[in-house]
Simulated assay, not measured.
Amino acid sequence: MPLRDRLTALLDRDESTAAPSFEFRDGTVVAAEVSGVGADWAALQPSPARTGAIIAPLSAIMSIGMPHPDLLRSARPVAATSSLAERMTLGFALRDLVRRRVGVTLHLVHGRSLSGTIDRAGADHLDLAVHEPGAPRRADAVSGHRLVPFEAIAWIRLEGAALPR
């Protein structure tokens, strides 16, 4: 059973127990509820509730801690999922952020972070206009541009935005 299916099983878990803890490739650990699962990424809502959803490439999740009942439940086969969700790649999700002009902070696998607005998202990389967190993307606020391969991304925090389920 692939990791994607195990995460899908956590979408409707009993949230009265401790939230799963996600350890990312950069060493960060975040307690969060799974709020969506795409082809190669997961949407997470940090717990306790804070602003800013997280997008995590599945390849950047190093481990997930969770209560034993959730671990067992996630190992059971899940009902058939939407073929649309199975086709929604990380690039697809990031192109939605491009359209909505959502500010992000990219946490890279080596521990550095970059804040700004994604200008373009391709199949395996994105273009980021770098600016201060929380600032709108305006030409005079942009301090530089970065081309970032998806494999360099440990996780992405969205500024005050949530992802649809």
Rank of each mutant, 00 (worst) to 15 (best):
A85H: 14
R100A: 05
L72E: 04
I64W: 13
P77K: 15
V104A: 10
G52K: 01
L106C: 05
A60R: 01
S74M: 04
T89M: 10
P46A: 11
T51E: 15
A85W: 15
G103C: 05
L106S: 04
V104P: 09
V78F: 01
F92Y: 14
R87H: 08
Q45F: 06
V104N: 10
S74L: 03
P46I: 14
R76F: 11
P57E: 11
I54T: 07
A60T: 01
P48Q: 07
R73A: 13
V98D: 03
S83P: 05
R50E: 13
P69W: 00
R101P: 01
I54V: 14
V102Y: 01
G91H: 02
G65A: 15
L58D: 02
I64Q: 03
P46C: 11
M62Q: 12
R50S: 11
M66T: 09
M62L: 08
L106G: 02
T81K: 02
G52W: 03
S82A: 07
S47V: 15
L58E: 04
R100T: 09
D96L: 03
M62S: 14
I61N: 07
D96R: 02
G65E: 15
G65L: 13
V102E: 03
T81A: 00
L97S: 06
L90Q: 08
E86W: 08
L90W: 10
D70V: 01
V78L: 05
D96I: 00
R73W: 09
S63P: 07
I64G: 02
S59R: 14
L94E: 12
D70F: 04
L90M: 12
R100F: 11
R99T: 12
A79S: 13
L44D: 08
P46V: 11
A56W: 12
R73H: 11
A56H: 05
I61G: 10
A93N: 00
L44F: 11
T89W: 03
P69G: 05
T89L: 11
R101S: 09
R101H: 08
V98R: 05
G65V: 14
A93C: 03
S63K: 07
E86F: 05
P67K: 13
S47A: 15
L72K: 09
R101F: 02
V98N: 02
R101E: 14
R99H: 04
D96H: 03
A60S: 13
A80Y: 00
P57W: 03
T105P: 04
V98G: 02
T89Q: 10
G65D: 15
I61F: 09
A85N: 14
L94C: 09
I55D: 06
A53V: 04
T105Y: 07
T51C: 13
L106I: 06
A79T: 06
G91K: 00
A60Q: 07
L84A: 14
D70E: 06
S82V: 08
